[in-house]
Write a protein that binds this DNA or RNA. Structure first.
Lengths: 197, 197
DNA sequence: GTCTATATGCGGATAGAC
DNA sequence: GTCTATCCGCATATAGAC
């Protein structure tokens, strides 16, 4: 006899990987069941439908997003602010290279969002939260007298857009020097607003 | 009796719109046939399979991309270079708002590319070409003595990434001042390299 | 409570009539 | 060039074994 929670986790895990690699449609419940070692209808004991499984996975992935985007260093100074920003990008690039599945899956939900209001609404929240994180990072620096409060909102949004698209392009066959692009973005955006005493 | 070319165009047109709105999987050949006013198997006279139809549409969309990305003004001067860049973004934003189907469809092909090498290879070429366009724009300005040849490759790629992601985010429910972000990107990237005599 | 066996219906695909 | 008939596979649903 199997353990209920264990089986559930295995289904989620198999779904996560196969959906990311092959896409929702190209992944049959049969193949997920096979990976887990159960029969296809057994999945229906855990999920009302394939769409429910996809939705559950989305909720899990949404949680993870928060932990990813909500990390920012405690101490920002004139000396280390660029390094802080550099590090944010470098970490994301490394994670993306190491774990492409996450974003591959996430991109599928973004596509779903143009066809399904449920995903559209939830993703809008996530993305808004993502922009907010960058903005609060800027405000944090402003509060500490590290940078001037000049166009901070737009600048933070600009960096967020660059950051996001770098992680997207890593998934493609286009090889660019993404770290250099990120550093250039940070340099360009901060040039002129970092206070040099 | 129907006209062959006319029917083909109608199938492509219906596919274009429905695929963009509902996605490849959620669009059945039956619904396309209904829109055109023919029966489902009739589509198989024009396309070997649904995948073939999707691929044909891709080739058509690929053509259009070239015409979109390969426009750049003939005369760049110190006085108008920022305006030129601003205009590129403004045009793209306007087009995107007016015609969201194009990018919605295109994004689906990007997703396919992580599952299918055919699309991966062709998209890599398109995206490479897209970066090249931005770079040659920079080189053009360098050649005319408008900007310094400082980090031009990375800067051009940075602008290309911003440009691309702005058009993506317009499709979402996230409303930002995209024109302002684009102008900020242009200002940030060009600040320091525009030659002031 | 956990799963298997089995049934239904839809969408993609093919053969062949007109 | 288009249609009818038909096949096959998969998502889905339910009945019931243990």
């Amino acid at each position: 006899m199997r353990n209920k929670e264990e089986t559930l986790r295995q289904i989620m895990q198999a779904a996560y990987e196969t959906f990311a690699e092959k896409g929702f449609h190209q992944t049959s419940l049969t193949s997920i069941a096979q990976q887990v070692g159960i029969s296809k209808p057994a999945i229906y004991y855990y999920f009302k439908s394939k769409d429910e499984l996809i939705k559950s996975l989305f909720e899990e992935v949404s949680q993870e997003i928060h932990t990813i985007t909500s990390v920012y260093p405690a101490d920002i100074s004139r000396e280390n602010i660029k390094q802080c920003f550099y590090a944010i990008g470098e970490n994301a690039i490394k994670r993306q290279v190491k774990e492409p599945h996450f974003n591959q899956l996430f991109n599928q939900y973004i596509l779903l969002s143009s066809q399904d209001t449920y995903y559209a609404e939830h993703l809008a929240t996530i993305q808004q939260n993502y922009f907010d994180t960058f903005y609060s990072f800027f405000q944090h620096a402003v509060d500490r007298g590290v940078i001037k409060d000049e166009n901070a909102l737009i600048k933070s949004q600009l960096l967020a857009l660059v950051f996001d698209n770098i992680t997207n392009f890593i998934l493609t066959n286009v090889t660019l020097d993404y770290e250099a692009i990120w550093r250039e973005a940070v340099d360009s955006v901060l040039s002129g607003i970092v206070i040099h005493e």
